[in-house]
């Protein structure tokens, strides 16, 4: 398994690099806790004025927030740093150093950068999901749990594919860092179940930017909202996204000319 070996190598390098900035860990942990507190306070303010939000009860919205944290933690830990690095390399022409290595280029650009402190968000997110399940009253069934795990895995794959496609655009447009900014603000919408948005926005968040499949579906799966059909669609979209990302990457790569190298 070359991918696993490469991942392990770059993870080690990433950890060693970040250990030089240990103060960032405390700031990051503090920031994550504060941002979780803001999210919880937001929910508290909402539920001080309403009992349910578009049919979602408080503990279900808590699960949405938890899944949101887990997914955004994974994205910012592993996917986003790699994509940012890639954009910079395309602009500066330093992608040459990746292409000349004897490994698959997409695998290499996907694993070579990470920000370990961001894992704090994943840990907090898991804790929030656990708390949401514990306070829901009912016990978590085997189907709900399996549906949750499957849809969460599919969510990560979908977002990875989606971000690779966005980043690959930099072969044409050179300066696309801000595309990640759009993604982030679109993704912010995932803090709330997509059901609350008006139809046009819901369609955007389902098909254009896969927020619905990334957050709402896994969180809903915990309270039995995911039918087998939804689950199948979620997995299918993940597969399509990853395959499409790889194809698109290979097309984009042909345009790369190492401009300023």
């Amino acid at each position: 398994m070359t991918i696993v070996r490469l991942l392990a190598v770059y993870l080690r390098v990433g950890i060693l690099t970040e250990l030089q900035y240990r103060a960032n860990f405390y700031v990051q942990a503090f920031r994550s806790v504060l941002s979780l507190a803001t999210g919880l306070a937001g929910l508290a303010v909402v539920f001080s004025h309403a009992t349910t939000l578009a049919g979602w009860r408080p503990h279900e919205l808590l699960a949405v927030l938890g899944v949101y944290l887990v997914i955004s933690g994974v994205v910012r830990f592993a996917i986003q740093p790699a994509m940012e690095r890639l954009m910079e390399d395309v602009r500066e022409g330093t992608l040459d150093y990746v292409l000349t290595k004897p490994e698959d280029s997409l695998v290499l650009v996907s694993v070579r950068a990470n920000a370990i402190w961001r894992l704090v968000d994943v840990v907090l997110g898991v804790a929030v999901v656990g708390y949401a399940v514990a306070t829901s009253g009912g016990s978590l069934g085997a189907y709900e749990f399996a549906a949750f795990v499957v849809s969460l895995g599919a969510a990560v794959a979908t977002i990875y594919g989606f971000l690779v496609i966005l980043t690959t655009l930099s072969f044409w447009f050179t300066r696309v860092e801000n595309i990640l900014v759009i993604f982030q603000s679109m993704y912010e919408a995932g803090k709330w179940p997509v059901d609350i948005y008006p139809a046009w926005l819901r369609a955007t968040l389902t098909f254009l930017v896969p927020v619905a499949f990334a957050v709402t579906v896994p969180a809903g799966a915990l309270s039995g909202r995911a039918t087998p059909l939804t689950l199948a669609a979620t997995v299918a979209i993940a597969v399509v996204m990853v395959v499409a990302a790889r194809r698109f990457w290979l097309v984009g790569l042909r345009r790369y000319s190492g401009a300023s190298a």
Binding site: H49, L53, N178, V181, S185
Partner: peptide, 28 residues
């Protein structure tokens, strides 16, 4: 192009809050 993209991001965040709170107001 990046100006336009950045702008889209800027517009979206308030729209989210807007939707959440009009939903809350509707249910109240």
């Amino acid at each position: 192009a990046s100006l336009a993209i950045w702008l889209l991001g800027l517009v979206l965040a308030p729209v989210i809050s807007l939707v959440v709170w009009t939903t809350v107001a509707a249910s109240g």
